[in-house]
Amino acid sequence: MAYKIVEKRQLVPDVHLMNIEAPDVAAAAKAGQFIILRIDEEGERIPLTIADYDTDKGFVTIIFQEMGKTTKQLAKMAAGDELQDFVGPLGKASEIEKIGTVVLVGGGVGIAPVYPQARAYREIGNKVISIIGARNEGLLILEDEMKAVSDELLVATDDGSKGHHGFVTDLVKELLDGDEKIDRIVAIGPPIMMRAVAGVTDPYDVETIVSLNPIMVDGTGMCGGCRVNIAGETKFACVDGPEFNAKDVDFNLLMSRLSLYRKEEMDSLENYKKGCGDDCKCQ
């Protein structure tokens, strides 16, 4: 099988959007689910949360940040190129129901998977307050798109170049301390951000949901590499999740397990750069 890249563009430095032709996946996809892709025969399988999908046109949108070898290699691909494998939709879909006011928190590339959820919550009549954050204004993605599907959009940047000077958690706390009743919070971003959000919301009686992205191989429950500890019980993020109640998640274990192959990831990237030559943009 081959899956064509129908569109590719850079959103901000090192972050790219791709529309992938995968009609079967697009037809079944729902907000909250993920896909696993493999670039070529030698490639590894990497999970990415679905950023959007178009059932009519038959494509799925992914947004990814250049980090290791595979994402660097992916970033160099262009519209018209093909991926060897694109499997999905995997994981359980988000439970999106009409509950009142929902706060959607996206950090960094985590804004991408938050977007289809914001849209879905709004479509069925919830009030959607979105909080998006990045290190600085130049790294903030999907601001316009998020604005279009939110009743209210708040922005935080670490350096204060846009919106609130500080973290998304500050804005979450302000909302929780405000007059408006918040019925649910969904937070997606780096584990450290999700842990911080979980910490902030814990004293308040507000359901808080996070989406976990541990290391996985098959994504169908077969390898168990994505084990996470949820309220003291081992769960597989790929089939039991990827979404869980934030207060139940052992984030320290998650972060530790994510770092398991750090050395190999560095070696792989070095090895890749060597093969690319000095003028390559991956350097």
Binding site: G43, E44, V217, D218, C223, G224, E264, S268, Y272
Partner: peptide
Amino acid sequence: YSANEFLTRVNLMKAYRFPEFDTP
């Protein structure tokens, strides 16, 4: 590791040929 994961990395993903194959 589960044996499934260990063996899948080795057999399906060819981790024994890392870094020629990407899976560690």
